[in-house]
Nucleic acid binder design. Structure first.
Lengths: 347, 347
DNA sequence: AATCGCTCCCAAAGCGCTTTGGATGCTGCA
DNA sequence: TGCAGCATCCAAAGCGCTTTGGGAGCGATT
């Protein structure tokens, strides 16, 4: 049998739909006694207002859209995605919002955003994986759709709301940390550098080197998908260099694991012969140790970022006229067993 | 400005909403010439019918629900989840469906499913992570909501539709493969054994041992969250045993990576001193090598499983009276460099 | 006694769409 | 000429809810 409707509930109680609606939505103009009767009957029947009807009547759909780009350039689903969603989802379910996901090819992005707007199925949108000069921001602004960007897009022309980790600072500090330990040949195993976050990380790395009068060595810098294989490949190539790095700075725990594997395969000891610092998104399924961190890392929970993004978006929806909001999360540098002073005698 | 509505479009064209609706939905009783005019105007205005209104009118919401359990027992978001979603999402967007995600604590599962039904926001549901005797199946059956289970629930009383990998067979074959190589001390590093898939994997492992007259050794069997740390811990403990395993059978690539690390830390060589076979879900961000597999593995794409689940569910929605459907995917055993004959002389 | 101000409830419109049940005009055939 | 039949279009109802604009009843105020 189909779910019970407001009208049926009202009929059963001998009340008008109006009164039942008001009783359930907490309006004051209804007797507390009748309200009690109504709520009791509602729970007994597992009554829930039909969202489609409610959305149509109120003009608010109580849903947030996440459009996930299916890139042809890198055919992987972003590994941090699940955790981000988990964080955002917490907030949504607490606030009574649904989350609607849409996976769309890179080429159809514009159409997808337009469509979400026109179909009216969501009240706001979270933008994932901003690129350096991301056209989506201008589009959403033009469409007048509330949105929050997870990350930033350096080239964006219009003001917009975002939540981001201070990637520049994090990688600058990590690099400084290694420099202070005496390392001079520091490799950067970065994400794809058309992604905004990867660009910022490189800037941080370069800034720290520059502050010590060091020029970045292209042979020690790679970008790519952040996988275990990437780390292993990069390490293999670099350790074979005439003047190999004594330290690696990785953009992801997976890359770091690949580097570690290759380092150990060379018979080198981590934290003694070679140091590794990595960024750690604190993914649920990929922990950097338990009590004590394994890798020295710049740590920032992507799940927390998900929560903040969601919270911010709901705030904007509640007050659309407010000024754009920003939240810059600082990563903490946690010291594990993967770093140590640079070896004195070059190998 | 708000998106254009059917009525506005009709007014602009000097037609009735009825005709415009019919023109756009391909009904025959409209002049092809007018249909052309209508479609042209519609595309020009980026017109899309409001989903909420359409859903209300048709009784179909064109959305599929995924309820992700947020377990208190294992506070991790299932790492395979993102890939599964990616597969399902492909199908949905091709068929014009939306995907709505709901993250709910284990305790609220029943309420969540009831609510999804009552709110009428989805036409069907995909059930994730079935446990041995999962109450959700009976509930959904009772609610009369179309659903497909990703995996199976051994104890379920009612018939239901599912898509699953033949976990039993996969692990039986993997174990046989190791036995054929002469291994007799084979460790099982399994997922949490209240999950149905983990139970089946253990059965497969035990069956193969039994077929060779071997009794399973509890000291060589662990279950837990499938992380790198789990693999490393398990390997460390087992390699310290008086009679250590010569081979490991892992439930996930992450566990296998942990085992590998510990094996190598012991100065043992993979594929020579110790063998590893792992299950490989072919996750986008965690590949088992590129052209050539690194680990010998039972391979089955979870993204493909997502596609199949979605497809099956849409089929059921189109024909709700049809008999329950099942799809059993066979994992292939791919041989990599992590396995070899059992060492003749015990270490 | 007349009026005011509450409290508590209801009828009806409307959200944007689909769909039923005609209307209208024209062609073709007896 | 008259009428069935067809091709096109439209008015209006209805999906399940919220919300506007009262309206009845009743004690309090003047």
């Amino acid at each position: 049998m189909p779910p019970i409707t407001l009208k049926q509930l009202a009929a059963e109680l001998g009340l008008s739909p109006t009164t039942v609606s008001r009783a359930l939505n907490g309006y004051p103009e209804v007797n507390e006694e009748t309200r009690a009767r109504v709520t009791k009957a509602a729970t007994r029947h597992h009554y829930r207002p039909n969202t489609r009807a409610k959305a149509l009547a109120t003009g608010r759909s109580m849903a947030i859209g996440h459009i996930i780009p299916i890139s042809t350039q890198h055919e992987i689903v972003n590994p941090i995605f699940a955790d981000f969603i988990a964080g955002a989802g917490e907030v949504y379910s607490r606030e009574g919002y649904d989350m609607v996901l849409s996976l769309v090819p890179d080429a159809d992005q514009t159409r997808a955003y337009r469509e979400m707007r026109a179909k009216g199925s969501v009240d706001g949108i979270i933008v994932h994986g901003p690129k350096e000069d991301d056209p989506r921001i201008a589009l959403l602004d033009e469409l007048g759709m509330p949105f929050v960007v997870h990350g930033r897009a350096t080239g964006a022309k219009v003001p917009y709301s975002w939540v981001d980790v201070n990637n520049t600072r994090a990688f600058q500090r990590a690099t400084e940390f290694l420099l202070d330990l005496g390392h001079r040949r520091i490799a950067l195993v970065n994400g794809l550098e058309f992604m905004d976050f990867a660009i910022r990380r490189r800037h941080g790395y370069e800034a720290a080197l520059a502050a010590h009068g060091l020029a970045p060595d292209p042979a020690l810098m790679v970008q790519g998908e952040m996988t275990e294989a990437q780390g292993a490949h990069a390490a293999r190539a670099m350790l074979a260099l005439p003047s190999p790095p004594s330290a690696f700075l990785c953009s992801s725990l997976l890359s770091a694991m690949g580097v570690r594997r290759e380092v150990e395969a060379h018979g080198l000891r981590l934290g003694r012969d070679v140091s590794i610092v990595t960024h750690d998104d604190e993914l649920g399924y990929l922990r950097n140790g338990e009590a004590e961190p394994i890798f020295t890392a710049t740590r920032s929970s992507v799940r927390e970022a998900g929560r903040r993004c969601a919270q911010m978006l709901l705030g904007i929806i509640a007050d659309p006229a407010s000024a754009p909001r920003h939240e810059l999360l600082e990563a903490v540098l946690v010291v594990g067993r993967s770093t140590g002073p640079a070896p004195v005698t070059p190998r």
